[in-house]
Design a binder for these strands. Structure first.
Lengths: 190, 190
DNA sequence: ATGACCATGTAATCCGTTACATGATTCG
DNA sequence: CGAATCATGTAACGGATTACATGGTCAT
């Protein structure tokens, strides 16, 4: 039941369902994502549970917006989730599964294409996170000492993404070398 | 619809639903996992689709086992999935979300506990994967040149896990230093 | 005999995606 | 006027977890 807790976390500032979807589509999708059709009912359910309170507000563009804000009860629930320890054990990496079983394809040229595509996607994502880190460094003169507590935790999370993605890119490069060596061997003695 | 493709990948050798669950519970849970109550119906559905063929077999221990093997059609479907490119964009990391919002707890002592627990869990997992790599190195005299294609892809996947987990452990350590510095500052001028 | 492990399954529920439905505003 | 974006929602379906149900073997 992580989504509702993540929504609580995202609602540090009051926001609409649409705002939250935008946040997922921009940076937040690196750790989670959700569709509007899941976000709207979740917010409604959370309001019924007393974790949120909403009001309608005219929008400068388009129809009225429904703005949600956390209640004290919602903030308590968020804290309870956070201090209950790291929520692990449900990670899913379809692309790692694909790499493990890629031997079934039995064509190193296809392996090379796969690893190369993977490398580029991981790299692009890493750059996105790195630019967010740069932005933090740029706007804080005494970085990292002048970060607010919430910014400090955000910073550590961004670093977690950047460093692990860089490591994965490096392994893709090593893998590409191994695969390329096999391809060279194949073409030489066939 | 990744689970069915992952099951196809796991069935390089014929196996029962119970065997597959065991594989998930041992190393495979680092990239995916599933419960028996999902595995059994999936295997049945895949057999109806013609991807698998099963037969019953007495077990040395306990009741009869149902052993599944991939058909040619199943192998084709697996290859089709693999060469369709890296399946990305649905990763979910609840623990990263927790870290991002941990500022809400507003207690660096709790932050330290969280990061420390996260570090230990990531480290333990890294060691598990590293021991699998060691085992591969040990049993291959001309490592990595004498790896079969399927082993080579497994090896690259293991390295992906090891390197990215090591990077995450290092970031946890850096984060712990930053948090510890804040704690020291708090206690000194309070 | 009782608890751990082997082994297979179904049912109820919940989480998540895709598709559908509606309508306002803004820019070209 | 048509496409893009803003904005909120419901319905149908499929994927995943939890709970339930059953029964055999083996070691203590």
């Amino acid at each position: 039941m992580s989504l509702e807790h993540i929504l609580l976390g995202m609602l540090r500032e009051p926001a609409s369902g649409y705002d939250i979807k935008t946040a997922f589509d921009q940076g937040a999708r690196y750790f989670w994502s959700a569709e509007l059709s899941q976000i709207y009912p979740s917010l409604q359910k959370m309001e019924r549970a007393g974790w949120l309170k909403s009001h309608r507000e005219p929008s400068p563009k388009g129809p009225e917006r429904r703005i949600y804000r956390r209640t004290a009860k919602g903030a308590d629930e968020l804290r309870r989730w956070l201090i209950s320890g790291p929520a692990m054990g449900t990670e899913r990496f379809a692309y790692i599964a694909q790499l493990i079983y890629f031997g079934e394809v039995d064509d190193f040229e296809e392996s090379r294409r796969f690893l190369s595509a993977l490398r580029e996607r991981l790299h692009a994502f890493c750059e996105l996170l790195e630019s967010a880190v740069q932005e933090m460094r740029r706007t804080h003169s005494k970085f990292p000492d002048d970060l607010q507590p919430f910014e400090l935790h955000e910073y550590i999370s961004l670093r977690l993404g950047v460093r692990s993605l860089k490591a994965k890119v490096a392994v893709c490069d090593e893998g590409l070398e191994l695969i390329t060596a096999r391809l060279a061997k194949e073409t030489s003695h066939v």
